[in-house]
Design a protein around this nucleic acid. Structure first.
Lengths: 231, 231
DNA sequence: AGTCTTAGTGTAAATCTTCAACTAAGTTAG
DNA sequence: CTAACTTAGTTGAAGATTTACACTAAGACT
């Protein structure tokens, strides 16, 4: 039939991940040092070939890479976009399907030391990490950051970066960090109540030298709640 | 190195398009009849292999397919999502990068008869076309319809389905068709003014047996304007 | 017991929506 | 020639929502 039935005409297919978490410096992304050519020794987003014998589908491939690099199995995971071109990989026409993963602070704390090999959390500054990245990963990361910033405006996204239990003040503070602006407390609480994605953890209170605060958890740790309006 | 340098381990890579336009019956999508196995004779979204010798990148591949099927070169085009799995194509592990294209009514009118081969506009009913489609195309189409319906709420999307010149009343009517509900005239006009994606065509008026209406065009026929709030 | 701090609620003023009426500008019928 | 008709485009009052900020609540610390 056509020449494209021949494997030599197939593009390379990879899955790459922008894995985010909160560090003291704010939103951070996991980068790995490449062991092999091309860009050997350079920083890149974690990723890898699709293993057609092992991965049932694209999302399974993304989860496999995530588990290999972080040990985390059930994060928030969403497909961002795909890029593909003749030039992005010197080895040939290549496609990358990019996923965004959000790790809860608990996941990060547990695996602190167990980070696979040459991996490192880098804080986001502006539209990137102030580092040049392999392939077109700087551009992919920029898109991922844009998507995250955009979704903070109208979704429960920040809830996926906190520990499993948190207070409303802590949640508001994450929204403020990611948005880069202060929010009104009563308006914030009204939105959270309307969006209906939190449930109080009965009896659990955050105690300090002040009035104790009710702790909450996400009703669903895998899905995003969308607001009717911007926050 | 790894076994994946061997082409036999690469997935199949295709680009598929959900091409929409407005017909008298409302939003419609272009379907083609498959000439070859698998699903020979069945309806499918237009698409095809990525030609690594010919296509510079994914979007170029999408534009090539679009031009082959419709003759249109500069539509509104946006990437929807990618699917990929072991099962979706009987020939093997396969990836599809799906694009949404919106054709202006002018484009459709010009090419009415020149539709390539066995292609046909089918009106959208509910979440599909009331027809079973090849591969997982019914599911891809459902996602595309969902994306369109969602974007009508907060973007200039409907403007890309009209002729190049149109009145505000015509635009409002498209919003109403796609949303399935009536909108308030003054609120609608206020949103359009705020979103600032239209410009009046000086001197051009729609004339009928009533007060003439100012005609407008999109400031940018390739990009979408996003509203601050829902319409 | 009083002070301090953060949690959580209440409220008045400002803004935005909704609904519907009103004016504008043409064509058509008589 | 003029009145009736139709759709374009604007205006405004009533109601709903948002915003800004102050207030009350509940604990720890001195």
């Amino acid at each position: 039939m056509t020449s494209h039935d021949n494997d030599a005409f197939k593009p390379i297919a990879t899955v790459d991940l922008a894995i985010f978490s909160l560090s003291p410096a704010g939103l951070s992304v996991l980068l790995v040092r490449r062991a092999n050519a091309p860009f050997s020794g350079g920083w890149a987003l974690p990723g890898g070939w699709i293993h057609i014998d092992e991965d049932a589908d694209l999302e399974a491939a993304a989860r496999r890479v995530l588990k290999e690099k972080t040990g985390v199995e059930t994060p928030y995971l969403e497909q961002l976009q795909s890029t593909g071109s003749r030039n992005r990989d010197p080895r040939g026409w290549s496609i990358s399907i990019v996923y965004i993963a959000l790790l809860s602070a608990d996941d990060v704390a547990e695996r602190q030391d167990a980070l696979a090999g040459e991996a490192e959390w880098r804080p986001i500054e502006g539209e990137g990490v102030g580092l040049s990245l392999a392939f077109d990963h700087a551009s992919l990361l920029k898109e991922a950051i844009g998507r995250i910033r955009s979704k903070v405006e109208y979704s429960s996204l920040p809830g996926h970066l906190l520990p499993v239990h948190f207070t409303l003040s802590e949640l508001q503070s994450v929204y403020e960090t990611l948005l880069g602006r202060k929010l009104d407390k009563s308006a914030f609480r009204k939105r959270m109540a309307e969006a209906d994605f939190l449930e109080p953890v009965e009896g659990e209170m955050r105690r300090a030298s002040n009035r104790p605060a009710q702790m909450f958890r996400l009703k669903d740790a895998q899905s995003l709640a969308l607001f009717d309006r911007r926050i």
